[in-house]
């Protein structure tokens, strides 16, 4: 009898102590450490940008972001992303469609090639375009003869932006489309649908959220790109400065308030991107969960 009571007590103890839990002291110090790390490396800089931007007051802030050079930088950034995002959307969908729905020689090479902009330093990416289109570059003379300017002009900035943002859409779509397989496309094909109709009515609706997610990431990178654009831009104020480059120039001129004011706009963009991204992920997860749940019915 005695023995069995002891055993029960012992079992009770085991049931209460979970295998994964630690003492309160360890738990709280680990959580504290993580929070401190987050605070110092993420929240503090974020707050600092806005604090610095507004340090000299609202009027200075407004003046800094409505000043003509700042406006032209914003305009250029918008142009660069308005051109590069749709193009990369197109390229990304085409590449993902080709890679996931067809079999052909050199497929793996193509996948590697798509990842190239991720692997190459943005500065090198910029230099590539200088080497190709610059004065001493391969097409330099030809371009001068035809009075075309690529490097140190808007086309160069757009090219560099397209290059660095190239992988985002394709990278987002490829795993998704791979997981979905080709069966629905084959079904549509047998039912007589043309390639365009299959893409439009079957493939794209199935990757809707991945596509939107890819566009958001592409846009964020296109607007925020510094390295590659810096090399091809030539830093001509009011002409070839994008927002990140403008921030750098202002900062180098010790014009901190203005630099941070423009930077705060980019930061806001980042926050909007994060919110959108979270929303898209939430929607996609909801769709997936809805399907998952209904499968078991």
């Amino acid at each position: 009898m005695m023995h069995s009571t002891q055993l029960q007590q012992y079992q009770g103890k085991i049931a209460y102590k979970r295998a994964t839990s630690e003492s309160a002291w360890v738990r709280w110090s680990l959580i504290g450490l993580a929070l401190a790390f987050l605070g110092i490396f993420l929240l503090l800089p974020l707050a600092a940008v806005f604090a610095e931007a507004l340090r000299k007051g609202w009027d200075v802030y407004l003046a800094a972001i409505t000043e003509s050079d700042a406006l032209s930088a914003m305009k250029l950034t918008l142009i660069a992303s308005l051109v590069s995002v749709p193009l990369n959307l197109l390229f990304g969908v085409a590449a993902a469609w080709a890679i996931t729905k067809f079999d052909f020689r050199g497929k793996n090479f193509l996948i590697t090639l798509i990842d190239l902009p991720f692997a190459v330093s943005p500065v090198i990416a910029g230099l590539i375009f200088v080497l190709i289109f610059g004065l001493q570059g391969w097409f330099g003379e030809w371009l001068i003869d035809h009075d075309l300017k690529v490097v140190f002009a808007v086309p160069g900035i757009i090219l560099a932006t397209i290059f660095v943002t190239f992988p985002f859409v394709a990278r987002e779509l490829i795993p998704l489309m791979q997981a979905q397989g080709k069966e629905e496309e084959e079904a549509a094909l047998v039912l007589g649908a043309s390639g365009w109709k299959i893409l439009w009515h079957v493939t794209l609706p199935n990757v809707k959220w991945g596509l939107i997610y890819g566009v958001i990431l592409t846009n964020a990178r296109a607007m925020g790109e510094f390295g590659a654009v810096s090399v091809v831009s030539g830093h001509i104020r009011g002409m070839t400065n994008t927002m990140p480059l403008h921030v750098e120039i202002l900062y180098n001129e010790y014009n901190y308030a203005a630099a941070f004011a423009v930077a705060s706009l980019l930061t806001l963009l980042a926050l909007v991107t994060l919110v959108l991204k979270t929303y898209v992920e939430w929607q996609a997860a909801r769709d997936a969960a809805a399907q998952e749940k209904e499968v078991t019915v």
């Binding site: 629905e184 084959e186 079904a187 007589g192």
Partner: peptide, 22 residues
């Protein structure tokens, strides 16, 4: 198809109508 390959974002009606609509 073995795993049906129904168009998951279309209703049953639209799935069956697909071959006629395209």
């Amino acid at each position: 198809f073995q795993h049906y390959a129904l168009f998951r974002h279309m209703t049953v009606f639209e799935n069956v109508a697909f071959g006629l609509r395209v």
